[in-house]
Design a protein around this nucleic acid. Structure first.
Length: 818
RNA sequence: GCGGGCGUGGCGAAAUCGGUAGACGCGCCGGCUUUAGGUGCCGGUGGGCUAACGCCCUUGGGGGUUCAAGUCCCUCCGCCCGCACCA
């Protein structure tokens, strides 16, 4: 055999086989006395092969899982696939390959790479959302929602993607464009299925305080829910004898309301304008606005437009008749679809008033420039309130409105109900039928799953391709037995991923989605890891599902993910987001082939703080590979040194001195450092740096005793295991004959964390002037004396008077001189 | 516009509690090993001045608090992310 060298190509398959053969990472649902820990990375959407972001995601999660196992936890670390979705279907339209076939192929590729990366997954719990054994329970959960009115059908103005030929949830529209394909979204009036997530708005908001999530993700969710407290106030149109309630967050400005505006979609607009001189103009205006895209209408900067309705309403606080308008800056979906306009204290109303020459009446403040949205004394309102602080007047006015039955406190949310139906094929069928006699009827539980039928033409035609599967569509009503048609829309794939973490707990259960006792044991997920792009969609929906299921008594937790970590992206070598068109895509496959899975994994963790974006560097991964090879060589050399050739426990020598003592100390320092970096924070980059330091020191102290070197290298192997598991296992075994993952995480020896002496920093006026060796724990006087005696300090002290001495024990002395 | 984050060597970064700025890695320079290249090992590497001991400057700019500031406060500039007619 030629010269021995670090060869991941033999080491990695060797350990992967052991773990597979022995089912090492499988975990029982039976408690075994250890604390449970549920470590989960967001499940992948299987499309093609895994990319570098997947590698980072699972390398991160795996490091956490290993660390938790070795710190005494029973760890659940499963894997699955978010297998339904548009890309596979669009691919089918293009290539004719059935979405199932393409998806299954991709799943096989992902599975293959997870093995080759050596991710410690409990494969006995593997799931895929397109598997009837899984989506049966997605449908089951839908029915439970339906029974409680949490899933309902209604006609509404919805977002329609003309390219994907389907409706989209509010959350899937970004800047007026389809999140997936980028087409400009249209507004359509359609009957669709919704989840009543708005019922949970307050709880989704309040419970954010209970979970350990990044601040910015919580803020994004808070903003998305958009809770506003204010009042509902009734304005009456006397001519038509209709009351129009409006929502306002500023009831204190009611006396400044000088006009009234309705959304173009408001159902009463045509009724109000009928018979007035503006009738024709209003019809034209409304039609034009409704045909405008989301994008065109949305811009805040565009000049205000609108048309008078030729009617007035009465301001309830002062009886004034104020003119009514229709304008597209008022949204039908928020509040009541009508507003009171206070131009002096609202920028939008101000712009509208200027454009249409309407009165702008200050009611708050004194001489601030208008529009003024701040606080101040009330004015021009009523003798009751003028002079009063506007915040106090707010309360008083709401109170008065309540007494007069003209208004009441009210809360509004930006959050809308979750539109879940999609007019597409490759998704979970919605388990209801439409019966001529009984209307919407749920498919009974025992008939689940409603199978996704086979079809040939995936081309969308403005209705679900499933509608063409007539044999499947035509069925009988479960209630009356008469003819009925199946629902042909499928579910948004976010429904599938809103509960998958629950299914992992009890993946084989075919009696129920899960057993309550089992789920109570594992939930919540202790550490969730994924990309920040899911900050709103998936993370909000999953929280909603868990709360709804908890309300049904199916779960005992209110939150799915106790702690969340959002990883940064790996950018291309040019520092830009990887994309095929940019030609800067780094694929993990050749990297793993060339450097090994351990080097690839350790590199993406070493590249920088894991929550930050970082550019890929080929020389960077080479550097990490070099480090792993150095560690391997030291292990190999020690395992072949005549005296150390027999594997045995790697204990530090009893009374080390010199280089040996130094190495034992360094190893203990590394244990302490790596442990601290992995606990509470995710500083894998500095943890790996510490192991590098340890390895470097062994090279520099080859004169140390064999046992000291063995201890240092076995420690390095043990510490590197969560990041480079194959190499860690290999080196540890070479030295000790033992399996590192079965060994507890090392604990530092406190006696070895401290040295007898330290470098005392000697400062004068805060500037470092010298450094001297000083005994650890020396009293302040002695430190001061040592500092004063330091050669360069003496030189600087010459002729100066010391007016103050600051001593930081075991660290520094600062002499303040004049 | 509102909200959040960030700004440190040639590059990725570290400094966790206000106490030695630049750990670790990349790159670069030099040495040893090698027939040579590569690999490997050792050393050097923020800027300026100096023969040297050393000295001065340096964490986006300016100001402040402090014995001491990358870290705290004020202010300005730049970049990134989220939301954006939500009454």
């Amino acid at each position: 055999m030629s010269e021995r060298r670090y060869d991941p190509k033999t080491i990695e398959p060797k350990w992967q086989e052991v773990w597979e053969r022995e089912h090492t990472w499988e975990v029982s649902n039976e408690p075994d006395g250890r604390k449970k820990s549920y470590v989960l990375e967001m499940l992948p959407y299987p499309s093609g092969e895994p990319h570098i972001g997947h590698l980072k995601n699972y390398a991160l999660g795996d490091a956490m899982a290993h660390f938790h196992r070795r710190t005494g936890h029973q760890v659940l670390h499963p894997m699955g696939y978010d297998a339904f979705g548009l890309p596979a279907e669009n691919n089918a339209i293009k290539t004719g390959v059935h979405p199932r076939e393409a998806t299954n192929q991709s799943i096989a590729a992902f599975r293959h790479w997870f093995h080759r990366w050596g991710i410690s997954i409990d494969w006995s719990r593997e799931i895929a959302s397109h598997d009837p054994a899984y989506y049966r329970w997605t449908q089951w959960i839908f029915l439970r929602m339906f029974e409680r009115g949490l899933a309902y059908r209604k006609e509404a103005a919805v977002n329609w993607c003309p390219n994907d030929q389907t409706v989209l949830a509010n959350e899937q529209v970004i800047d007026g464009r389809c999140e997936r394909c980028g087409a400009v979204v249209e507004v359509r009036q359609l009957e669709q299925w919704f989840f009543r997530i708005t019922d949970y708005a307050d709880r989704l908001l309040d419970d954010l305080d209970k979970i350990d999530w990044p601040r910015h993700v919580k803020i994004m969710q808070r903003n998305w829910i958009g809770r506003s407290a204010g009042a509902q106030v009734v304005f009456r149109c006397e001519e038509l004898e209709i009351d129009y309630p409006v929502f306002t967050t500023r009831p204190d400005t009611l006396f400044g309301a000088t006009f009234f505006v309705m959304a173009p979609e408001h159902p009463d607009v045509f009724k109000l304008v009928a018979g007035t001189e503006h009738e024709h103009e209003v019809h034209e205006y409304v039609n034009r606005v409704l045909s405008e895209s989301f994008e065109d209408r949305g811009a805040a900067e565009k000049p205000k437009t609108g048309v008078p309705l030729g009617r007035t309403v009465t301001n309830p606080v002062n009886g004034e008749q104020i003119p009514m308008y229709v304008s597209d800056y008022v949204l039908m979906e928020y509040g009541t679809g009508a507003i009171m306009a206070v131009p002096a204290h609202d920028e939008r109303d101000f712009a509208f008033a200027q454009r249409f020459g309407l009165e702008i009446r200050r009611v708050v403040g004194t001489d601030e420039e208008l529009p003024y949205t701040g606080d101040g004394p009330m004015t021009n309102s009523s003798s009751l309130f003028d002079g009063m602080d506007n915040r106090r007047a707010y309360e008083a006015i709401v109170h008065w409105l309540e007494l007069e039955a003209k208004g009441s406190p009210s809360v509004n949310y930006r959050l809308r109900d979750w539109l879940l139906s999609r007019q597409r094929y490759w998704g979970c069928p919605i388990p209801v039928v439409y019966c001529e006699r009984d209307g919407i009827v749920a498919v009974p539980d025992e008939d689940l799953p409603v199978d996704l039928p086979e079809i040939e033409d995936f081309q969308p035609k403005g209705r679900s391709p499933l509608a063409a599967a007539t044999d499947w569509v035509n069925t009988s009503c479960p209630r009356c037995g008469g003819p009925a048609r199946r629902e042909t829309d499928t579910m948004d794939t976010f429904v599938d991923s809103s509960w998958y973490f629950l299914r992992y707990c009890d993946a084989d259960n075919d009696e129920a989605p899960w057993d309550r006792a089992v789920i109570d044991r594992w939930m919540p997920v202790d550490q969730y890891i994924g990309g920040v792009e899911h900050a709103i969609l998936h993370l909000m929906y999953a929280r909603f599902f868990v709360k709804a299921l908890a309300d049904m008594g199916l779960l005992g937790v209110q939150e799915p993910f106790q702690a969340l970590f959002t990883q940064g992206m790996i950018l291309g070598p040019d520092g830009h987001k990887m994309s095929k068109s940019q030609g800067n895509v780094i694929s993990p496959a050749p990297i793993v082939d060339r450097f090994g899975a351990d080097a690839a994994r350790a590199y993406v963790l070493f590249i920088g703080p894991p929550d930050q974006d970082a550019a890929w560097s080929d020389t960077g991964v080479e550097g990490v590979e070099r480090f792993l090879a150095r560690l391997w060589r030291l292990g190999d050399a020690l395992a072949h040194e005549p005296e150390g050739a027999q594997p045995r426990a790697a204990e530090p020598p009893p009374a080390p001195e010199g280089s040996s003592l130094f190495l034992v100390r360094k190893a203990n320092w590394a244990i302490e450092k790596v442990t601290r970096d992995m606990t509470g924070r995710f500083a894998f980059n500095t943890a790996i740096a510490a192991i590098m330091e340890l390895v470097n020191e062994v090279y520099r102290h080859l004169d140390a005793d064999l046992d000291a070197r063995r201890f240092a290298i076995a420690t390095a192997a043990s510490l590197v295991f969560p990041f480079a598991p194959h190499l860690g296992a290999e080196v540890y075994e070479m030295l000790t004959g033992e399996r590192v993952w079965e060994k507890p995480w090392p604990a530092p020896d406190p006696a070895m964390l401290q040295s007898d002496s330290f470098q005392l920093v000697c400062q004068i006026n805060g500037k470092v002037r010298d450094r001297v060796e000083a005994p650890t724990g020396a009293p302040r006087e002695e430190l001061e004396r040592l500092c004063r005696e330091a050669p360069n300090v003496r030189a600087h002290l010459d002729g100066h008077e010391v007016v103050k001495v600051i001593v930081v024990p075991d660290k520094l002395v600062n002499l303040v001189v004049r």
